[in-house]
Design a protein around this nucleic acid. Sequence first.
RNA 1: AGGGCCAUAGCUCAGUUGGUUAGAGCGCUACCUUGACAUGGUAGAGGUCGUAAGUUCGAGUCUUAUUGGCCCUACCA
Length: 934
Amino acid sequence: MNDVTTTGQHPIIQNELSKTYNPKEVEAKWYPIWKNGKYFKPKKGKTNKTYSIIMPPPNVTGKLHMGHALDNTLQDALIRFKRMKGFETLWIPGADHAGIATQAVVEKKIWDEQRKTRHQIGRKEFLKTIWQWKDAHQDFIINQLEKLGVSTDWDYFVFTMDPIPNEAVRKVFVEWYNEGLIFQTDYIINWDPVLQSAISDAEVEHKEVKGAFHYIKYMIKDISNDSNINHIDHLIIATTRPETLLGDTAVAVNPEDERFKHLIGKKVIIPIVNREVPIIGDNHVDISLGTGCLKVTPGHDFNDFEIGKRHNLPLVNILERDGRLNNIAPAYQGLTVLDARAKIIKELEDQGLYFKKEECTHQIGHGERSGSIVEPMVSKQWFVNVKKMAQDSVSAVETDLMRFYHKSWENTFFAWLKEPRDWCISRQLWWGHQIPVFYCENEKCNHLWASVNNLEAEEEQGCPKCKNKKITQDPDVLDTWFSSGLWALSTLGWPNEKAMKEKSFAKFFPTSTLVTGFDIIFFWVARMMMMTLKNTNQVPFHHTYIHAIVRDKHGRKMSKSLGNGIDPLDIIEQYGTDALRFTLAAGSGYNRYINLDPAQTEGYRNFINKLWNAFRFIHPFIKEEHAITLDLINSNELIHHDRWILSELNAVIDTCNKAIDEYRFDDTSLCIYSFVYDKFCSWYIELSKPILYGDDLDQKRQRISILKYIFRNILSLLHPITPFITEELWENLKEEGEDLLIVQEYPEANEKLNFTYDQHNMNKFVEIVTAIRNLRQSVNIKPKDEVEIFLFIEGNEFKDYIEKSSSSLNDLAKIKKLHSYLLNEKSFHSNDGSSGESNAKSGRQNIPAKSISIATSNCEIYLPLSGLIDVDEYVNRLKKDLIKTETDYGKLQAKLGNKNFSDNAPIEVVTEVKEKALELGKKLNSLKTMLNNF
RNA sequence: AGGGCCAUAGCUCAGUUGGUUAGAGCGCUACCUUGACAUGGUAGAGGUCGUAAGUUCGAGUCUUAUUGGCCCUACCA
């Protein structure tokens, strides 16, 4: 014990901590310590259970955007939480080759630098360039992820075109090909003329576009020879795409249509190309729509393709791969679709075959990536029949083998899978997994087969049928989602047994949780589900947490064209990673969107700073005095404030544990937030000051111990969300020999630490302090000026409590002299609270003559006034409070008076309402008394 | 056209199976530099829950209709 403390004077403590928290230094410091210290690697924990997540692999050449920041913050929070809970955790990072996107970027780069297309450069050289580009950029995205603090095991890093995923892709393709699930067929697909590739249905966006119906005359052949009752010699057909008439191979009418059914079997002459095509009857034609006649272009329309199949119509292709017209009609060759359309209309007008035009708006498919109008075209493509896999995926979710959070997302999942279509998996790109199908070049053989081997090996072996050595491989590559669909397997080494063993496949598969956005439920979640179930009969993961999509603060999509994108790295630069992570976590529950406003992050940065300063406050005391070990549950030393804060902490611990397990990151974050601000800083620290600055050393040591205990718990609770500052502060609070916070145990609630009596009293105490402050402000008493206060307290027990707390009360409400009296309960039941008799009983004869007052549900408070003060504002407040209380009281009384209510409502509810009504009744009486006194 | 979602304070959102006086953050107003913190403190103003009807003792919560917004699927020749 030193002299300075015993005199009650606080020694001047050298304060080495800055007044505001500096995230940059701290963040830069901790990531390497965790990473190099192997803290991210799986380690057996106390539960003996595992917890694993596969990271949705970002595009290898991409840049971290807000979606990544959100996705990875939440995954990291889960991983850190489970790690602290004693699970053996594994978070697998990776990167995606992102076929179309990456190829497009590199193609553009080559064009900008060399004015060469990929075809001019050649496939081999082009791929070499992309690989170089990939190698140069991979670290970029990894570094950005590290800035976020992701605790992934980097040794597990996988790129989608690494050997193991390649092996998985080939194995699956070959197996499914041999099973007949993968097949090649002529099919009408969405052709993106800019990408010059087929794209899947899901990659097509329908947008409303202005267009026109063009009504065109198709002359009927040899009509004169017919005894035609209606004397029809032509059909008028409406179309939005006149240029496709070059590819017409029939005209269809509904077989029930009285106007036209007699014409079925006759022929019409297509204008311009003068081709004769049949008139056919097909139910697809809607009698009431358009003119009731439909031109059939099986090569360039999805419905017409189906009609063509039904009627065995020939296919005529009119387009080149670049979307320009081919040589079907030499006069139009090389024209764009739009130019050809204009020219055809002109020509039809000249020939008198153009009937009329009608403006309209209609939906046109656009390529999601290129933005260009998609042309339906027929070509040979590879497909997967997913029917069975889709059904199995649906039942896996229906039987809860995999559960969506929130459950309503399963509707989206089902919407796709309950009516599955064949999945077009070939893409006319170069960057990706080349389709492992080989063709024998011997014209007499023409055999094709699938093999897991590469071209060189196949050439060596020769064609399996004719042994010819001249072999080519299918030039197309697989849809990126084909390899992504195998991600849950290939990241853990599947199907290579050696790799599976090294990566502990058996231990970590199936994975625990998938965290992703709703926009890829079909693209990715469904495909992983289908492909994993098919290959292993197991689900890829047990939970899918669908997080929100980040928007700007007005709810608009972040986009380049709007220029409203928020760069996570800018936010980190400005406010720190922890503040960004807290913002994202606090905005993540089961919501669809997060409308991100940097002002919010600023608010959470302030919270982080608050934590820092709370620490700055308690730290010197902890350094000065050794904390003592306390038996929290059995200690007689605890005072009511300690029991109160311990109970509150306990409640927060309970909420946090439950909320994270249910992916309610918002609840978790906000309950710690309010605990730190509204309980710990505003009250417990304030209440502790007199003790810490006082000279009762035992009391002081005890208080320091509890402050430390609470603060350590706060750090643990916050660590999954704000890892950096918590680790930094832990460094200063941990005991000798304790490891880093990242591997400490997450707090667990303890029922024995719930002291409801103390919570109850503390709440009332807070109510009284607030009421006195309110009174003071209503008459503009300066914060520093101390006042005299008269309290009339309900019940001896509570009166004792308040009297014991009087020094705290005086301190917090700046009271120089406190008078307390018992408020006789009987007076509450008197209708006239102001009667002399009740006043005597309730001690009200002691009410200061000239005073203002306020009531809480358990206490009447009087503040005597000296001098002339305008009390209007105060009286108004009192009246307002009275009106509000009367209204509420009236409502409760009406409810209680309603026999139906007391008969039907649960007893707890009735009791609660009764208690509340009683409290309000007391307050009402007090308010009336006070107003009468004026 | 079919299906789904949403509508709560100026803004962004919570609000569990219907049950006390509908909450939070930001913003706003007034006062205050007090020895953790002005990235602070204290107090306060502000919603009757899009609209209408219904079920119920009781509706922000359930039903129906309606208005407005969003999304998805299909597609209009």
